[in-house]
Amino acid sequence: MRSEQVHIRFLGPEDAAEKLKLETDNREFFEGYSMTRYSDFYTLPLQQELIEIYAEQQENDQAYSFGVFENATNLLVGAISLVQVTRGPLQSAVVGYALDKRYNNKGYTTESVKLIVDYAFQKLALHRIEAGVMPGNDASIRVLEKAGFHKEGIAIKNVQINGEWRDHQVLAIINPRDP
């Protein structure tokens, strides 16, 4: 799936080294906003294993993990996922994303979120996509709002980041095709 500046695609074994570089180059930046990661996360074998896990999750309709690639260079500049895919009466998922700090403020994340929302609504027939953002991360909140998400409230101490339980602003988008 492609937009003006980026495209997203499922990661394959050939992407493991580039994913490791993305994670290593942005370790401090990403860890400021994501769940605690252990040192073995930053190894090629674990990145290879994670890509295999992503494929299994996709096959089992549990999660869908994509790489974000810059169109001009075809470089991996980020990652975006739909996780906690729930079927039945909910038909929902949670979106998460991370973009290389060198590519921030170019619209790449907004385009990536729009692409994955289209995928979720058109290909997966989901009804709702939710996101959680730490209050104060205004850039990420703006990304989601530009992609059509609306604020719903604050989830108190719902994600542990660097050993501390943190609040998250909950945002969501509903499939416009659903009544």
Rank of each mutant, 00 (worst) to 15 (best):
138 D>Y: 01
148 G>R: 02
99 L>P: 03
45 P>N: 08
83 V>Y: 01
80 I>N: 00
123 K>L: 09
44 L>R: 08
139 A>H: 02
139 A>K: 06
48 Q>Y: 04
128 R>G: 12
98 A>E: 09
33 Y>A: 14
92 S>H: 02
66 F>Y: 07
81 S>A: 14
75 L>C: 15
178 D>G: 09
104 N>L: 11
86 T>P: 03
160 Q>H: 09
51 I>Y: 02
124 L>G: 08
45 P>V: 11
110 T>W: 02
159 V>T: 14
119 Y>S: 08
105 N>T: 11
101 K>Y: 06
36 T>N: 07
162 N>R: 13
121 F>R: 05
71 N>T: 15
161 I>K: 01
88 G>H: 02
60 N>K: 15
95 V>C: 08
157 K>G: 15
35 M>N: 13
89 P>D: 08
173 I>P: 00
177 R>W: 05
72 A>P: 10
122 Q>W: 00
80 I>T: 13
105 N>D: 12
73 T>K: 08
165 W>Q: 10
34 S>D: 12
114 K>N: 13
126 L>C: 13
123 K>M: 13
149 F>P: 00
113 V>S: 02
111 E>V: 10
93 A>G: 05
54 Y>G: 05
73 T>Q: 05
49 E>K: 12
137 N>F: 01
144 L>D: 01
141 I>T: 10
168 H>W: 06
71 N>K: 14
116 I>A: 08
148 G>E: 05
148 G>D: 05
168 H>V: 07
33 Y>F: 15
145 E>Y: 00
50 L>F: 12
94 V>T: 14
101 K>C: 06
108 Y>A: 11
161 I>Y: 03
56 E>N: 12
176 P>R: 01
162 N>G: 12
45 P>L: 07
85 V>Y: 06
43 T>K: 05
133 V>E: 05
50 L>W: 11
98 A>N: 08
143 V>K: 01
56 E>G: 12
37 R>L: 15
133 V>R: 00
95 V>T: 13
141 I>V: 13
39 S>G: 04
163 G>L: 03
122 Q>K: 11
75 L>R: 14
